[in-house]
């Protein structure tokens, strides 16, 4: 083998490595911002705020009363009215318990059955007792109880 082809071989090897390096560099310089760009909403923390549910006195004696409420919040680039549904129960000691209707399993809306004194989820057969504990079905934890407060006679709930 003469020197010339060997030198040519070296050149070609250099070209191949060079191409891989350039490809890798551009690929990396693109992959980092593009992946960050795509997954960026996952890092956004939802800001939760107190929402007015109604006059506390009017809710006295409520037993698993369904209340739908709306609050204004940012949805991406849009300011929208978000809607939520909860069950409100007067605990008799002047405090209220507010159950989120969102099933702790996979997010369907549970229904309160007055006759059976239980919550039923229409999706995967979850059943919760009146305190929100799992009686049957796949949920991993009890129903979510939302933070509540009464201020100036108004019942507020921290939106879920």
């Amino acid at each position: 083998m003469t020197d010339v082809p060997e030198e040519g071989q070296q050149r070609r090897t250099f070209f191949k490595i060079g191409m891989a390096a350039i490809g890798g560099l551009i690929g990396l310089a693109m992959a980092i911002p593009l992946v960050g760009f795509a997954i960026s909403p996952a890092f956004r923390k939802a800001s939760k705020k107190w929402v007015d549910l109604g006059i506390a006195d009017l809710l006295k004696g409520s037993r698993y009363k369904k209340i739908n409420y709306t609050f204004s919040a940012k949805d991406g680039w849009v300011e929208t009215n978000k809607r939520r549904s909860v069950y409100v129960t007067d605990q008799g000691d002047g405090t209220f318990q507010v159950y989120s209707r969102v099933c702790s399993h996979l997010g369907c809306l549970v229904r309160w059955d007055e006759g059976k004194d239980q919550f039923f989820c229409p999706c995967h057969g979850a059943v919760f007792d009146s305190a929100g504990n799992v009686v049957a079905g796949p949920p991993p934890r009890p129903m979510d109880k939302l933070p509540v407060k009464v201020e100036d006679g108004i019942l507020y709930v921290k939106e879920s």
Binding site: P33, L34, G36, F37, I39, S40, P41, F43, G76, W77
Partner: peptide, 14 residues
């Protein structure tokens, strides 16, 4: 578009 430029990570760059 404003949201992309100002609020999305690397949005201005992309």
């Amino acid at each position: 578009v404003n949201y992309i430029s100002k609020e999305v990570l690397f949005g201005g760059f992309v």
